[in-house]
Design a protein around this nucleic acid. Structure first.
Length: 291
DNA sequence: AAATTTGTCAACCGCCTCGTA
DNA sequence: ATACGAGGCGGTTGACAAATT
């Protein structure tokens, strides 16, 4: 007996995302924040698995993502970190603002690995290749065993990832790869809630979160109709009008400072009719991704 | 010009970890 | 203590594009 699938497989779409789906997801998350990925597809009107939504958002749609190939300094940092951490792509990615683990992993496989081999280094161990070509053939990353591996190594690398990033990294931030979250945190008018890791959570306590906790609403959501944001707000207004008065969740006014911050990422305004530049970005992405 | 090979990268799969009841 | 669910992670796949024959 395996685990329950993360979502109902029936009727769940797979494969490349369309522009329309992207827009729905971006619109939903930027408006409501991240919470309970399992519920996101339903609430956003997507026939996708929650996991798929999370992946699409974190790897492709997040406004703070950088685009294009890794720079030389980023590449060098990846090599350094890989030498210390092995294939812990998410930890490596956490030291490269705007880059995702998937992106780094792909870049490693398609570029860096080859470069290292060409330079006579074993990409798995970062040691000079002992000999023969068959070694090169068989030295996959899967067999990677870092010199740091083992109990001590684990604590060592964890320590590393939890503490300040390596020197190279700090030089990167000084080059202007400033963490967006950091910048938003510095904005006194838009202090974000705790436990947030991305732009979407940075608004004040969001409506979606409070809705998630409401059984009555969940029953409503189980119904056949795909709820829209307007539906949700209408529902909330009808059932919990005090929330609007008590400002228990975000009002548009409360969002204003945060929305201003979003301009940094090309999101000038995102009400129900917005996403001007961001939509353009998505269209640009589509050129690259017609799949 | 057509066929084949190679490269790239978005997306999926399944396992692991962590929080919670 | 244990079972369960959700999110996170790393490995792998497959579609498409570009390069080569």
């Amino acid at each position: 007996m395996g685990r329950q699938p993360c979502c109902d497989k029936l009727g769940v779409k797979k494969g490349p995302w369309t522009t329309e789906e992207d827009n729905k997801l971006v619109n939903f998350i930027l408006t409501n924040g991240q919470c309970c990925w399992r519920a996101v597809p339903k609430l956003a009107g997507l026939r996708r698995c929650g996991k798929s939504c999370r992946l699409r958002w974190t790897n492709y749609l997040r406004p703070d993502l950088k685009r294009g190939l890794l720079t030389d300094s980023e590449e060098q940092l990846v090599i350094d970190l890989h030498a210390r951490l092995g294939n812990r792509w998410s930890k490596i990615a956490s030291n490269l603002p705007g880059r995702t683990d998937n992106e780094i992993k792909n870049h490693w496989i398609t570029h860096i690995k080859k470069k290292l081999l060409k330079g006579g280094l074993d990409p798995a161990t970062h040691e000079p290749l002992q000999n023969e070509s068959h070694n090169v053939e068989t030295s996959g990353d899967n067999n990677y065993s870092s010199p740091l591996e083992g109990d001590n190594a684990t604590s060592s690398s964890d320590e590393n990832s939890n503490s300040s990033p390596p020197e190279n990294c700090s030089s990167m931030t000084s080059e202007g790869h400033e963490n967006m979250f950091q910048r938003l945190s510095e904005n006194s008018n838009s202090s974000p809630p705790q436990n947030c890791s991305s732009v979407t959570c940075e608004g004040p306590k969001n409506m979606f979160q409070s809705l998630c906790e409401d059984k009555k609403l969940l029953n409503y959501l189980i119904g056949d109709d795909e709820p829209t944001l307007v539906d949700l707000m209408t529902w909330e207004l009808q059932n919990n009008p005090q929330n609007f008065n008590n400002r228990d969740f975000t009002s548009w006014d409360d969002c204003a400072p945060w929305l201003v911050d979003c301009q940094d990422f090309g999101v000038h305004d995102f009400g129900l009719d917005s996403f001007n530049e961001f939509e353009i970005n998505i269209l640009d992405m589509d050129k690259k991704q017609p799949k």
